[in-house]
Amino acid sequence: MLNYIWLFLIVIALIVGAGKDINDEVNNTYRNEIPLEVIFIPSSLPSGTVTRTEGEFCITAEQFNTYYGITLQQDEIKQKAELALSGGNMGNFIISCSETAPVMWQQMAKSISGKDKLAGKIEKIEFAEDNNSAKAVIIMEPVRFVKLRAITQAAIDFANIAVEIAIGLIGVMALWLGLIKVAEEAGLVKILTRLLAPVTKRLFPDVPSDHPAIGAIIMNTAANMLGLSNAATPIGLKAMEELNKLNPKIGTASNAMVTFLAINTGGLILIPATAMAVRAAVGSANIGVIIGTSIFAAGCATVTGIAASKLLQRLPIYKRDLIAGKNKSEEGKK
């Protein structure tokens, strides 16, 4: 099933991305090659023949909305621009989009330069008598394939993020694996597993209740509930490694593994710390109001996950994978 979902994500992404780009091209969403009239206000008064100057491009919200055929822009637009003029009334410009720039321009700038720079040609510029302002007709650098460019960038970025995450795990992994090894040798894990044996026997009937896997599962769940994600992942991976030692078919998920992941992805938590931090940051009057609702919802998710894992493992299509595995490993032994 992971195969299908994985492929679904990729294919849908490519189809939607290409579709949006074609749509942009047909409607000319970014108004490629269509001139736009703006008022230029130089920051210092130019004298004589102007070649280089800095100032602001100003457009009223109404004019901007009509030009792009949208209704989003509310305020008058004023953005810093650098001009390089040749022959008096022609030239090029670069706009540096600040945070107040229209969303449309910010997206265009990001797509073209990856930063905040928007470039283009000045078709015509006429300074007023006193050089205080100028009427200019500009054409932006054409913007095409915004989504496909973004997809390319995301593919590369996320591949890098994946490696960064894995490398970042090495340290905490080593720390927790070391500590757990000491706890195992000292017999601490055995005490823990014996305490919770009545529960774990039912959840993981295939795993001996004093197996180190059970100890790791208990510690992982406890760490998750306390929101200690730095400790939870390494201990969880330790649990997977121990469960894999009991796995009848290497390379295929065992029943116990799926039940364990159901508990893990259910996200049982005592203090919803992340959401509470965000609530505090955006000025909530009562950040703790979600504690009860979160515990309830995560509890429902976890119970459903465990029940689903127990029910689905009996389905013939999922049973077959394991039995085929057993036969193979037996044949291997012969």
Binding site: I250, T252, A253, T265, G266, A298, A301, G305, A308, S309
Partner: peptide, 21 residues
């Protein structure tokens, strides 16, 4: 982490849990 490629019912279980949540 344990080189498992055939995830069996793990994905439907995870999605059902998400839906219930």
């Amino acid at each position: 982490s344990v080189s498992i490629k055939n995830t069996r019912h793990a994905v439907p279980v995870g999605l059902l849990a998400d839906l219930a949540g």
